[in-house]
Structures are given as C-alpha cells and as structure tokens.
C-alpha cells in the first residue's frame, strides 16, 4: 500500500465521521421539533403538574437543547443509548440482539443476491440484446416492481401454507440453533433478494457494457478469447467501481430497509423494533435506531469508495 491510497482512504473515513456527526445533530434536532412532551407521554393525561415537573427535572428536559445533545452523544460514545420510555429497558441491550438478527438476515440475503446479480449481469452482457438478456432483465425488473409485502405474502402462501416447506413466522431468539435460524430466514431472505436483485444486475450490465466499448476489449477478442472470458477477465475488473457502489447501496437497503419484510414475517430485527417504538412514540429508541441506520449507510458507502480507490490500478501502482 502506498501513500496516495492511504491518504485517500483516511480522507474518506474522516469525511464519513464528520457526516455521521452532522446526521446525529439532525436526528436530535428532528426529534426535538416533534410536538408533544415526553414526560406527559410517560405519565399519561391524568398526571399531576408536580409529578410532571419532577419527571422533567429527572429526565433533564429543562436543560437547554445543546446540553441535552452533548449528554446524549456522550452516552452513545460510551455505549449508552439510554432507556426506552415505553418499557424502561436498556436500549443498547435490546438493540444488540435485534441488530444481530437483522445483520444475519441481511447477510443471508446478500450472500445469495450479490453473486447472483453479478453473474446474471455478466450473462446478460454475453447475450446482450438477445433473448437471454431480455429474459433476465424482464424477470429481474418484474421481481423488483412487485412491492415487498406482496412478494412476502406470495412466498408465505406457497412455501408455508400450501407446501409447508418453510415456516411462515420467522421467530428466533438467542437459544435458536443455527440451522433452525437459517430455516427461519429462508423466506424473508428470498423476498429481500428478489427486491434488490434487479438494481444490482442492471447496474452490473450497464457498467460492463460501458467498458465493452474500450479498445482493449477488441485486443482480447483478437487474441481469440471466448466471449464470456473477455467479459469476466477483461471487462469486469474495470467495472468494479460502479458495481461495488450499487452493491453497497443495496446492502445498506438490506439492513435499513427491511422494515416491511420483518413485520410480515414477524422477524425480531431492527425494523420491527423501530416500527413498534414509533407507534409508541418512544423518542430515545427512534433516535438510537435512526443513528445506527445512518452509521450503517455511511459505513457501507465508505467501503464502496475505498473499494473503488483500491480497484484503480493507477492509484494502487503509482508511476
């Protein structure tokens, strides 16, 4: 690794941190602007003014906003996300298991979806504008066009109700063994895969087709390489940067955007947790989840940037 790469990578990471800080300010400000009083929400309509005042004092609601922000951020930096107002449970502990579950589901979906999308993209380029290309694009676009809940219920109808291969409810807890856990996420992971497949596939196809115009593709053709080897060996390595970018966006979606799928399959992940607590107007939980989602998004985009930098031979091997 040479210095220009290290410098660029350090620059990206630093930018990401600054961005995350800015997002934390926005999240905090956003939840402050929401109408309603937390103390009132906790104690209910029948609370006496004294009780309300006491609780406000206790929660620090009388402090100025910036001071509360600093306290909040300081706590998060030490792993303390506060306690959920609705249940009184420690948020960090609740999120811990749920984040693990969400990441597990996302990983299962990604392990299938990413290679599948890239291979389908390569095949589509090989048979570009032919029947195979149109079939792949058509199916992928169709699966993306259906809303997730529709795909989810169709899967449940066939695989859980009619043929009874997989469970319709994906409840797992800490004691669930790995294989059972895997079986539980098959249907939600399939639904997620179908949702993200087309975007990655189409982007891979477009990025490679762009490279296929280059003179070095002709060189490879005139060496007698097979069409698919040309795409795999000569076109794909030069299309990595845009492909990684879109893959990372979709991975972020797998983690951040799973709300609907988790609710359908009653999967105890971050999405379900967020939906529950939005309904209960549990502001500390919403803040914490929002911040984690933002961190996931920013991290994956930094990874995409770094991958694009490292994939560039001009930066990897300077003159």
């Amino acid at each position: 690794m040479s210095s220009p790469i290290l410098r660029l990578v350090a620059q990206r990471i630093l930018l990401g941190l600054v961005l995350l800080l800015a997002v934390s300010v926005l999240i905090f400000a956003g939840t402050q602007i929401l109408p309603g009083d937390v103390a009132q929400a906790i104690l209910g309509q029948s609370a006496t003014p004294e009780a309300l005042a006491n609780l406000r004092e206790q929660l620090g609601l009388n402090d100025p906003a910036w001071l509360r922000y600093v306290h909040w951020l300081w706590g998060i930096l030490h792993g303390d996300f506060g306690t959920a107002q609705s249940s009184g449970l420690d948020i960090a502990t609740s999120i811990g298991t749920r984040l693990k579950n969400t990441l597990f589901l996302a990983a299962c979906a990604a392990i299938v979806a990413v290679p599948l999308a890239i291979v389908l993209g390569l095949i589509a380029v090989r048979y570009r504008n032919g029947f195979v290309d149109k079939l792949i694009s058509g199916l992928a676009l169709a699966s993306t066009s259906f809303p997730e809940f529709f795909i989810g219920y169709v899967l449940i109808y066939f695989f859980a109700v009619k043929w009874q291969i997989f469970p319709s409810i994906s409840t797992v807890d800490d004691s669930t063994p790995f294989l059972e856990r895997l079986q539980a996420v098959v249907l939600p992971a399939t639904a997620l895969t179908l949702v993200v497949l087309a975007h990655m596939m189409r982007m891979t196809r477009a990025a490679i087709l762009n490279v296929m115009q280059s003179a070095y593709i002709e060189t490879a053709e005139l060496k007698g390489l097979k069409a698919f080897d040309i795409i795999r060996k000569h076109a794909f390595p030069n299309a990595i940067a845009p492909v990684v970018n879109v893959v990372m966006l979709n991975l972020a979606y797998l983690i951040v955007g799973v709300v609907v799928v988790e609710v359908i399959f009653v999967y105890p992940g971050m999405g379900q947790y967020l939906v529950d607590h939005v309904a209960k107007r549990d502001v500390p939980v919403v803040q914490a989840v929002g911040l984690i989602f933002a961190a996931v998004y920013i991290t994956l985009n930094i990874v995409a940037d770094i991958a694009a930098i490292v994939a560039n031979p001009r930066l990897r091997h300077p003159k």
């Binding site: 003179a215 060189t219 000569h234």
Partner: peptide
C-alpha cells in the same frame, strides 16, 4: 475456428497501445 486462429496464426498491433492494453492487468 476463428478463435483458434486469432492470437495464434494472426496477431494484431493497434494504433494506440495505451488504449489497447487493459489497465487492470
């Protein structure tokens, strides 16, 4: 048959070698 002769019996030298070499390898 065409693939078998390209790069074996007949080879090609392009005008712009800078563009004809794959930057990734």
């Amino acid at each position: 048959g065409v693939r078998a002769l390209r790069g074996r019996e007949v080879c090609y030298v392009a005008q712009s070698a800078a563009a004809a070499f794959n930057p990734a390898h």
